[in-house]
Nucleic acid binder design. Structure first.
Length: 373
DNA sequence: AAGCCACTCAACCGCGTCATC
DNA sequence: CGATGACGCGGTTGAGTGGCT
């Protein structure tokens, strides 16, 4: 329905972007904002389709992108969120504010998935596919107990996005017409500072000491400094106004829970602000979208929403020092077998710790239990 | 030095969804 | 209310690159 003809049109360039094209796109977006992606290429003097421009911008040229190796914390975040959300890369990326969905997707497919498989974990279910892994208490691995968490988090993400849009609309309604408001929503959903110094991206790259500036690279591969100020406040990627939301069924999703159903938190972890919080059946507006419920839960409005994700991303036990699979081959005295065994052991410990966390009673005995009436 | 192979990741493709007419 | 346009998302592709023989 309504598919755009895109690059099938004649005279539209495809393939790697040149530096000149990057500069044109950056200059245009900095000056005018992207506006309609469809119309942008002509206005910016680019022989590209709008789709290609949008992709280049969102995945590469945006100034608020962090590039380079993923940190252990980021890896954990990806693994945990993937266990909950599956291949919803944009949702996962929303928790890693300086990473793009494309980058995360690539990293998962080329690194994390393989490493999981290598140590005997099914990347999709986080179940052990062999006896390579065992939990501390010997309980069988199961991803089933993630289902409620997944439902919960999924619904929360949807409501997050919706509320963000609505609040922006409300804030802007005084001074903008609808078209302008929508435009702003689109821009803000990309996290793009309209008036940001986009061209500095290229300049910074050029001026970075020690950077191998190869602007002639056929793919116009630019790397950006990693120390830009974050656009959101925490490592979770959650921002002020984060909220907890209803079960997916009550957000109008495809899930069909019985009406009047009740979600109840049953976790015992007192560090989690969701603990002991009970959401009763409701009519009309979802009550958990209102601040009193956050108060009832004994936490601030910001904490309230961030609680679950915070639990996901912040309460994880031991820190993995680093994935040594990429940098462990430095000791020439060790035999390959020794190295592999050591590496395998570290990997097993790493994944064991993740699975232990995922399946531990305090975290995964579902912060939300479902009581259909 | 040359050929082969595996890996990475930027970019493309096609579909779904939403807004507008 | 259906048709159309535009955008976003996830899956896939293929050029570039480095390691090995």
């Amino acid at each position: 329905m309504g598919r755009s003809p895109c690059c099938d049109k004649v005279n539209l360039k495809k393939g790697p972007w040149t530096v000149e094209e990057d500069q044109k796109l950056l200059a245009y977006v900095e000056k005018h904002g992207h506006g309609s992606w469809r119309a942008l290429p002509a206005k910016a003097g680019l022989q590209r389709c709008g789709k290609s421009c949008r992709l280049r911008w969102t995945n590469y040229l945006r100034p608020d992108i962090k590039r380079g190796e993923f940190s252990p914390q980021e890896e954990k975040t990806i693994i945990q969120l993937h266990a909950l959300l599956g291949n919803r890369w944009s949702a996962i990326a929303s928790h890693l504010p300086k990473r793009t969905d494309n980058e995360i997707k690539n990293y998962w497919n080329t690194h994390l998935k393989k490493r999981l498989a290598k140590v005997g974990i099914d990347p999709c279910t986080l179940k052990a596919t062999s006896n390579t892994l065992s939990s501390a208490d010997g309980r069988p691995r199961s991803a089933a107990n993630l289902s409620h968490m997944a439902q919960w988090e999924s619904a929360r993400l949807e409501a997050e996005a919706r509320l963000a849009r609505e609040s922006k609309l409300r804030a802007a309604s005084g001074s903008m017409n609808l078209q302008q408001q929508q435009q702003q929503m689109r821009s803000s959903s990309l996290g793009e500072p309209i008036s940001s110094p986009c061209l500095d991206v290229l300049r910074e790259r050029k001026n970075t000491p020690g950077e191998n500036v190869d602007l002639e690279s056929p793919t116009s591969t630019l790397s950006f400094p990693e120390n830009r100020p974050p656009t959101t406040e925490s490592g979770t990627g959650l921002v002020d106004g984060d909220v907890a939301v209803a079960p997916a069924s009550q957000q109008g999703s495809e899930n069909s829970e019985p009406e009047g159903a009740e979600w109840r938190f049953s976790g015992n972890d007192t560090t989690d602000c969701l603990t002991g919080f009970s959401v009763e059946a409701f009519d009309g507006e979802a009550p958990w979208l209102s601040e009193p419920y956050a108060s009832q839960a004994g936490c601030s409005w910001g904490q309230f929403g961030a609680g679950f994700t915070g639990m996901l991303l912040g309460e994880f036990g031991e820190q993995k020092t680093r994935d040594h699979s990429r940098d462990s081959h430095t000791n020439g005295h060790e035999t390959c077998a020794d190295e592999e065994e050591e590496e395998g052991e570290e990997n097993r410990n790493y994944w064991n710790s993740i699975l232990n966390w995922v399946n531990s009673p305090s975290s995964s005995s579902s912060p939300v239990s479902y009581n259909p009436d």
